[in-house]
Amino acid sequence: MLAFLVQRISQALLVMFVISVIAFAIQDGLGDPLQEMVGMSVSDEEREAIREELGLNDPFLVQYFRFAGNALQGDLGSSYFYGEPTLDVILEHLPATLELVIGASLIIVVFSVPIGVYAAIRPQAWLSKFFMGVSTVGISIPVFLTAIVLIQLFSIGVVVDWFPSDTGWGRWLNDLLTTEGGLPSYGRGDELTPLFGTWETGFLSSDGLAHLILPSVSLASIMLPLFIRLIRAEMMEVLQSDYIRYARAKGLSAGRINFLHALKNTMLPVITVGGVQIGIMVAYTILTETVFQWPGVGLMFLEAITRSDIPLIVAYLMVVGLIFVITNTVVDLVYGLVNPTVKLTGKKA
């Protein structure tokens, strides 16, 4: 166990080192940070003076070693735009992103498990076919399109008058398709509850929850179909296995077989995939956060790129790299707990 952790930590350090070198190497291609810092009519001399002050004129290696030296002491530099240490800026924005990911994960768990299991048990039912059809569509719609449609339907609202309103059925159809709107379409709202440090949560107020709905649903919309299909496929496979047939022969109730014995083994691969997907979801938040003006790290990163805020870009990439390594490590540990026959690498058999 200890050897395993040591191995993972050294991997994490390697990953972060490689990321920092790459991020530093591409900084020339990211543009000139001064463009965002000074007005158009500032003279070249003034610009040169600021550049010198920021150390932007130094050779690549000098800049990198200065950065690496500070980084070893836990200082990842200061953002040009925010004027604060990059880690502080990221920590300020991280809670918003984590809450969005938590909201989306809850939606995924709550919907994917029952739907996946149902579709596996009753593959021929029309409802199963409906879910499978919808999930194919869902998986192929880009997240920003989902988000825009959701905003139009549930924030702005649509009035449908395609059907004759002088007939009963026409009115009924019009009413059915007309939406009220009213859900917040941007930001996290005003009523955030401070938890600890920079973490303010939206989960404890109705206003905060209302702001979470649309972004979480959009973010969940990419992963949910994937999980439904995964659970369904795994479950169907498990249902064919010998021990399930034996349990049936033994006369155990269908509920006990499906939800206790079969589901447990179905979840094994789902956990592995799920862990990796949560990491990927952090990356998907860039799109979702942009559309919903969600003040998280994704939006912050995108804006840092348009501003060529190089220290912030480098720090963000390193932090995301770290998150990936951590989630993978946790997934491996959990997997070992769920299925003791799996050996962790580095652990003696």
Partner: peptide
């Protein structure tokens, strides 16, 4: 004042009454 960089989101915020 809320900064909203994305054009579509800014317009939606107005149309939805946000």
């Amino acid at each position: 004042l809320t900064p909203i960089k994305e054009n579509n989101t800014r317009v939606s915020a107005l149309l939805s009454g946000g």
